[in-house]
Amino acid sequence: MRRLDFPNGPLFGRRAVLGLTLTPLLFGAARADEEAAKMPPQPDDRFVFLTGPKKGQVTQIDDLPLGGPQVQAYPVSQDGTVRNETPLNLVILTRFDPAGLSEETRARSAAGVVAYSGVCTHQGCAVNMWSKDRDAFVCSCHGSVYDPRNGAEVLAGPAPRPLPSLALKPADGAVAVASAFSGRVGGTQK
């Protein structure tokens, strides 16, 4: 988990803070942080990049390449807590021309940006690959293909159900969470 000065300030680690002052009060604060970092995305959360040159920074709409591929991100609370204590909070963000989105997907998007759980519904691997041929998300483990323009419906592969989506709203050049995940996040184990 990381905390950051919202929205674009420098990052500092929770553990680094602990290293400076080991007071019971801070332990309490750290516990609260940890709880916050495990919580699923909350309304008004924004997102920070997991990878790339802007790693750790808040994702702005203009940062997202039009038409894909997706970027991997974690939700970040308004007070700067990055909710990355569980891999189940991994989110993939992609920007499209809104005209190309299905009606339902468009209704959940903001400025053409769509957000889905990045955790494959097959067995929980990261959906962090992009197929140019199919213009779609691909899971990194067994190649399930999801349609980003239509509710992340499964186009191919072993995934049993679409990726849960997050409804978004615009927030000063970024996007923010408008509602909770549309379904249960994570893989399916039989």
């Binding site: 891999p87 955790v119 494959c120 691997c125 483990c141």
Partner: peptide, 8 residues
């Protein structure tokens, strides 16, 4: 298996 676990 732990929550959020995945394996290839």
């Amino acid at each position: 298996l732990p929550e959020g676990f995945s394996a290839l």
